[in-house]
Design a protein around this nucleic acid. Structure first.
Lengths: 226, 226
DNA sequence: CGGGGGCTTGAGGCCACTCAACGATAGTGG
DNA sequence: CCACTATCGTTGAGTGGCCTCAAGCCCCCG
């Protein structure tokens, strides 16, 4: 229950797991890079030259409409791989939510290894499928769930991904959460307030991004599953 | 512009293109099956024993919430492949929208071929990526677009996929469209009425599912792109 | 011709959005 | 260390877009 999946080295899908340093293949190109809070890592429709893994920090991937409406497709936390495209271009813009360090690997070298190594190839497919499954679940949320259900689903996802001892230190703002859930930041704030009053969650000290899960069962009852 | 992508044999991603009958591999298991209008092809969480390709007809893939709210993730038209899972179970329920004939292939045999054939393996990844891209675009629609923008995007998608000479014979009902776009059927109907009044679309004879595209440019201006 | 399902249209309601004010917090520079 | 400021979060009031409920039409199909 309290396994720290936030620890990069404990996750199954590290870049290493892609097979880059396995058996016959030496590590081809595993450099690191750091981004300050709010800095863009890559832009939508830019050529996808690298694949990334979060070492420390958090990243948001989003699309923008011409008038500024934003839809965040995913949050990438420590250990997560992102920027993995099959076509030549990125389909999202990626930004550091907080100061973030990432590992990089050249996309071309990954492709070349995948060409000859079925294990790497299968891991690529597996990761893409995981992303697809997340997107499919998120479509149900965006298309059919109420604001309370969306926020509950978000908290359950974050609990699974970053909670330690029931405490969630969320890196993202209310606006980020809103743009992930297809809501406004006010609606997110109201939903969290309601859950606070209901005794489902609490806040640590004065930091409203430190959320404590008080009643997991009641929270789960708000998040309808398909 | 008027290429009939609805023709199964002209599409790049037929089951054949997966490599099942290529070079060294004989056709393993390509049988057919027909489903009457409204019949379920497979259910969510059922073991994924087969992969399907639509030969004639149309299929909807959807998720249900316990109280009956439905989100359609995709429509599958002639030539489309669906039911391709990486995990062992289906993540959607699939139903025939109209009387539909599908080709089937055993999932296990496909996996085995992919294991040894990089071409098949890469095609699997390519198809999964296409599905992912569609889902990502649809998240933006569901999370951030207005009802008019959603219906416009739907018509543009259908125009690309099934229009011949500007006429779209839609197989799905208003309710299906609504559940695809995260709206109600009344809202879809009102949006179509508005477009009719605006001279963007027309209806053929008395069949409201036969939509004529009258002003592609004006329609495109309603569908904001990211 | 009668029944039923699908579509449209209207009237009214509600949930989430918009606009606004305010408090709290973190970051900045003196 | 402390003002100063910008940013973030909460809360309230009012609006509006989409939903709900309902009626009626048309077509398909027995």
């Amino acid at each position: 229950m309290f396994v720290r999946t936030a620890d990069p080295e404990s996750r199954p899908n590290t870049l290493g797991a892609l097979g880059m340093e396995s058996a016959s293949n030496p590590i081809v190109n595993l450099s690191e890079f750091s981004y300050k809070k709010g800095k863009e890592i890559f832009g939508e429709k830019e050529p996808a030259e690298y694949v990334y893994q979060v070492k420390f920090g958090a990243v948001r991937s989003y699309k923008l409409l011409p008038d500024g409406r934003r839809q965040i497709g995913a949050f990438h936390l420590a250990g997560d791989i992102f920027g993995l495209e099959n076509g030549s271009d990125h389909r999202f813009t990626a930004e550091a939510i907080v100061n973030t360090t990432v590992r990089l690997i050249k996309r071309r070298s990954l492709e070349m290894v995948a060409e000859s190594d079925p294990v790497v190839s299968r891991n690529l497919l597996s990761m893409t499928t995981n992303n697809l499954q997340h997107a499919e679940d998120h479509m149900l949320l965006l298309g059919r769930k109420t604001s309370l259900e969306r926020v509950a689903a978000f908290l359950i996802e974050m609990d699974r991904r970053i909670a330690a001892a029931g405490v969630m230190p969320l890196p993202m703002s209310r606006r980020d959460i809103a743009d992930y859930l297809g809501l406004t930041l006010e609606t997110v704030s109201r939903a969290l307030s309601r859950m606070h009053v209901l005794g489902i969650i609490g806040f640590i000290s004065t930091n409203q991004r430190q959320i404590v899960l008080l009643d997991r069962h009641q929270l789960a009852s708000l998040d309808l599953q398909d």
